[in-house]
Amino acid sequence: MDYHGHSGWLSILPQPDGLKRLGRKILDATLPGSCLLCGADSQGSLLCPPCTNDLPVLPEALCPICAVPTTHGERCGACLRETPHFARTIALFCYDFPADRIVHALKYGHQLAVAGWAGQKLAELAGANVFDCIVPLPLHPERLQERGFNQSAEIARAFQFWAKIPVDRGNVLRTRVTPPQATMPHKERHKNVRGAFECRRDFTGQRLLLIDDVMTTGATANECARVLKLHGAAEVTVAVIARALRH
């Protein structure tokens, strides 16, 4: 899929004209002032005003821990049954169109401008929350080599620039390759990531911000937060570009 929702990238690759059009589309999307989603004039921003207005916002009444919608902003049933190891979740958008295309542009299209944009917006949304250290959710070395960069670390870098909070990029490791969470049944996702993280630093008494791109069930963030708490973290907050919600 490309960023405009059309399939068929592979089908046009053998055609020189198709390659030129594709190259122009990607170039236009990366030029300053060109909207990532539609290519229109965005006046120096990542997105033009109409595309910005199309971004799916989360409702005001959310579970204070995992950010799923609840009737009056109370804890959701899942967090009541088993309290997560993180204290709260900061999310910019619902993981729906076109926010999902923005995440894909970063994760699979290497559009690092998205990380800068998201890091700034998350820093603004976090506001008065005080953190001692930022921890980007780590990738396993094999995945890092495949992708070439860790999208969470790039978001953390931008967040650090705006919030002036140190980032720990090397002491929290992903030690086990796991199947992508999106391919797993919801009930299996906690088992899938169990024991996948390792921490090599004492975080005693520190309030940590754990940054990722998307939260689905929260299983991955919860397992990483569990390890951070075992190494002394007083509190872990999760920040993501988008929160996936069940429809």
Rank of each mutant, 00 (worst) to 15 (best):
D41G: 01
A78V: 03
P56H: 14
R75I: 09
A40V: 04
P49R: 13
D41T: 06
T52F: 09
P59N: 10
P59H: 06
L80S: 03
G77M: 05
A61L: 10
V68Q: 07
A67G: 06
C76H: 03
A67S: 15
E60V: 13
L80E: 11
H72N: 14
L47G: 05
L47W: 02
A78C: 00
E74N: 14
L47H: 06
C76T: 03
T71P: 00
C51H: 01
C66I: 08
T71I: 09
V68M: 11
L62T: 02
A40S: 15
P59R: 10
C76K: 04
P56A: 15
P56F: 11
D54A: 15
D54G: 02
L46S: 08
C76A: 05
G77C: 00
R75Y: 10
D41A: 08
P56S: 13
P50M: 12
P69I: 09
P59G: 10
G73C: 09
E74V: 04
L62F: 06
L80C: 05
A78H: 01
G44N: 11
P69K: 08
G44K: 07
Q43R: 14
G44S: 11
C66V: 09
C66F: 09
C63W: 02
I65Q: 12
C38M: 07
A78Y: 00
A61G: 00
E60I: 13
T71G: 09
L80T: 05
L47I: 08
T52L: 12
G77A: 15
C76R: 01
C51T: 07
S45M: 08
C66W: 04
C63E: 05
P59Y: 13
C51W: 02
P49K: 09
C51V: 08
Q43D: 14
D54S: 15
T71R: 14
T70R: 05
P69G: 09
H72R: 13
T71W: 06
A40C: 13
S42E: 01
T71F: 10
L47E: 04
A61W: 04
C48V: 02
L46Q: 06
L58R: 05
C63K: 03
L47T: 03
A78R: 07
Q43L: 12
G44T: 14
P56Y: 11
C48Y: 01
E74K: 05
C76M: 05
G73I: 11
A40R: 15
C51L: 11
P49E: 13
L55T: 01
A78E: 14
C79F: 00
T71C: 06
P59I: 11
D54I: 01
S42Y: 02
L80F: 03
R75F: 11
E82I: 00
C79A: 03
G39A: 12
A40M: 14
Q43V: 01
C38V: 07
C63I: 06
G73R: 10
T70G: 07
P69V: 08
P59M: 12
S45P: 00
P50H: 12
P69C: 13
G44R: 11
C63H: 03
